Lab assay of single mutants.
Amino acid sequence: MDGTRTSLDIEEYSDTEVQKNQVLTLEEWQDKWVNGKTAFHQEQGHQLLKKHLDTFLKGKSGLRVFFPLCGKAVEMKWFADRGHSVVGVEISELGIQEFFTEQNLSYSEEPITEIPGTKVFKSSSGNISLYCCSIFDLPRTNIGKFDMIWDRGALVAINPGDRKCYADTMFSLLGKKFQYLLCVLSYDPTKHPGPPFYVPHAEIERLFGKICNIRCLEKVDAFEERHKSWGIDCLFEKLYLLTEK
């Protein structure tokens, strides 16, 4: 054995408090879109979701699917093309516009009456609605409950000090017999300040354990050449399924 860690023996890093005071403002996230600093976007979609999607959907149609901090995630069109209703929230209007443009979807925009100064973008087909606002303002819009949440790049982007508020927001959107698919990253948080932030299993239990059954479905090596600039040499991604207790 050469000592290389595999996707099945990932350790939890003990120094989980080192990132707790890290803060990125909404304006800084918007600047990332304006300046093209969106390496977190996956042009081909998320491979773990693609692998498990049909198993999760079980042939159902007409589900309501929520994408927190959606950006221009191509997976939104995957669900819409399968007959589901997609709702996303994203602070960057540019990111939302790029989604519709890159997916060749016509759309309209209208003000969100409950949140002055914000807009919702709706596909002409009517099954994709993307709200351009802070996720913490979203419950004011009465958008209803969801059958499924796809959380990739959301919890790991939320400032650590806001995670409890974020989890409570997610709980307010969950319908009966929900499936909450959650991706988190595992790396040494003493070497990279984030975002994306390190979210250990214990944190998921703390945030969601009282209401959800929590199961880790898969762990994969997600390290890429660009991650060397973070000062790390190891990065794993974990896919969790959260269901109603």
Rank of each mutant, 00 (worst) to 15 (best):
T141P: 05
K122V: 12
C132F: 02
S124A: 15
T25N: 14
T6C: 07
D137R: 05
F99W: 11
G126C: 12
E27V: 08
C212H: 00
I10T: 15
R215M: 07
K20W: 11
A154D: 00
C212M: 06
N35L: 13
R82P: 00
L130S: 00
R5A: 11
D81P: 00
T55A: 11
K176A: 12
A39L: 13
L217H: 01
E203K: 04
E98V: 03
T25L: 06
C133I: 12
S61P: 12
Q179K: 15
T4R: 11
L69S: 12
F171L: 11
G161E: 07
K245W: 08
S85W: 08
L57G: 10
K58L: 06
D151A: 01
F66R: 00
W78T: 04
H201W: 12
A202Q: 08
Q103K: 06
V199R: 01
T101G: 12
D188F: 05
E43R: 11
G175T: 15
Q42W: 08
E12D: 12
S14E: 07
N159R: 07
G3M: 13
V86R: 01
G88R: 00
Q42R: 09
T141S: 10
G231H: 14
L69R: 06
L94W: 02
D15F: 09
K145L: 04
V220K: 13
K238D: 13
D188W: 04
K164Y: 11
F40W: 12
L174S: 06
C234D: 15
K228I: 07
T190G: 10
H41K: 02
Q97S: 12
L207D: 04
N35W: 11
T16I: 09
C133L: 10
P196E: 01
F136K: 05
Q42E: 15
H52A: 03
N21K: 13
C133G: 06
A154R: 01
C212F: 03
A222W: 03
K51M: 04
V34W: 06
I128W: 01
G36P: 09
R163G: 00
L53T: 06
K238V: 12
G59C: 07
K176E: 04
G231W: 03
L174N: 00
L138S: 03
V34T: 14
F99D: 00
W78Y: 09
W150M: 08
N21A: 14
F223D: 14
G71D: 03
K164A: 14
T6L: 08
Y166P: 00
E225L: 15
F56V: 11
G62P: 04
N213V: 13
R5L: 11
L53Q: 05
T55V: 10
T25I: 05
D54R: 03
S106G: 11
D31T: 14
F67M: 06
S134G: 04
G161C: 04
S229L: 15
G45W: 06
M76K: 01
G231M: 03
L138R: 00
I128P: 01
R163E: 01
T25Q: 08
T141G: 08
V34G: 09
A157Q: 09
R82K: 09
I143H: 12
T113D: 14
N104V: 05
Y107K: 02
G71A: 05
T55E: 04
C234K: 01
D221M: 04
L53H: 07
N142R: 10
K51G: 06
L53P: 02
K20L: 13
G194C: 07
E11C: 13
L49T: 04
K219R: 15
E12S: 10
R152C: 14
K210Q: 09
H227A: 08
G209D: 14
C70W: 03
E75L: 02
C132V: 04
T4F: 09
A222Y: 15
I211T: 01
L130F: 08
I149R: 00
Y187L: 06
T113F: 03
R226K: 13
I143A: 01
P200H: 15
L63R: 09
S186E: 11
P200G: 15
E93S: 13
E43G: 10
N159S: 09
G194A: 07
N213F: 10
H227C: 03
E224G: 10
G175D: 14
D31H: 09
I135F: 00
S14L: 10
D2E: 14
I143P: 06
C183G: 05
A154T: 01
N142F: 08
M170I: 07
N142D: 10
E11L: 02
S7I: 10
I232D: 03
Q44S: 12
G3E: 13
L207W: 09
K20Y: 14
T101S: 10
Y240T: 01
L182A: 02
P139G: 11
V23Y: 13
I211W: 15
I232H: 01
T101K: 15
T6H: 03
S106M: 06
M76L: 04
E12M: 11
N142K: 03
R140K: 09
C165G: 04
H84I: 03
L241T: 15
T141M: 15
N142G: 09
R82Q: 14
D2T: 11
E244F: 04
Y107V: 06
H227W: 05
I112Y: 09
F197E: 04
L94V: 13
L49A: 04
P195T: 05
D2P: 14
K20R: 07
H192D: 09
K191E: 03
G83F: 04
E225M: 03
P196C: 01
D162W: 10
T190E: 13
S229I: 02
I158T: 12
A39G: 11
R152T: 11
F66E: 02
G231C: 09
F121E: 00
R64C: 09
I143W: 04
E28N: 04
G153A: 06
C165Q: 15
E93A: 14
F146T: 01
Y13I: 15
F208T: 04
K176L: 14
V86M: 01
G144V: 03
R215N: 14
K50Y: 11
M76Y: 02
S123L: 00
D147T: 02
L8C: 13
D233C: 15
F197I: 15
T190L: 14
P160V: 03
N21E: 12
R206L: 12
G153K: 05
M1K: 13
N35M: 12
G175H: 13
K119W: 04
E224D: 07
I204P: 01
V18Q: 06
L130T: 01
D2R: 10
A154Y: 02
M76D: 00
E17V: 09
Q44W: 07
D233E: 15
G144H: 07
S85K: 11
A202C: 12
L138T: 02
T113P: 12
F99Q: 01
D221N: 10
E93W: 06
T141W: 08
L173P: 01
S61E: 15
I91T: 06
F197Q: 12
P195Q: 01
L242Q: 00
N35G: 11
K119G: 02
I158A: 03
E203F: 06
K177W: 03
P68K: 00
E205T: 08
S108E: 10
T6K: 15
F79Y: 06
C212R: 02
C183A: 07
P189W: 09
H46M: 09
T118M: 08
E237N: 00
F208E: 01
A80T: 07
K72E: 05
M148F: 11
S229W: 11
W29Y: 03
A73V: 01
A80E: 02
K32Q: 08
L57T: 05
D233W: 11
C216W: 08
V184M: 04
I91S: 08
Y180V: 07
G45N: 05
K122E: 03
P160K: 07
Q22V: 11
E205F: 11
V34K: 03
A154V: 01
I128K: 00
L69Y: 05
L63M: 06
T141I: 08
M170Q: 02
V87G: 03
F121W: 05
T141L: 11
S124R: 06
L241G: 03
H201P: 15
N159Y: 06
L26S: 04
G3Q: 15
S229K: 00
H227L: 11
T25V: 06
D168N: 15
E110K: 15
V156H: 04
E75F: 03
T16H: 05
A73L: 13
C70A: 03
L26P: 12
K145S: 11
L182V: 07
D233Q: 14
K50S: 10
T4E: 11
K177V: 04
E12C: 10
P139T: 15
G36W: 12
V120L: 06
L217S: 05
L155W: 04
N142Y: 12
E17K: 08
T25E: 12
Y131P: 00
L105R: 01
E27Q: 09
D221V: 14
G209E: 08
H192E: 09
A202E: 15
W150K: 00
N35P: 08
M148T: 06
E27S: 14
L242W: 01
G88K: 01
R5Q: 08
S85M: 11
D9M: 05
I128G: 00
S129W: 15
D15M: 13
I204A: 00
P200I: 07
D15H: 15
A222E: 06
T25G: 07
E237Q: 13
V86F: 00
G194K: 13
S125L: 12
S134K: 10
D31R: 10
N142E: 08
I232K: 03
S129R: 09
R206Y: 15
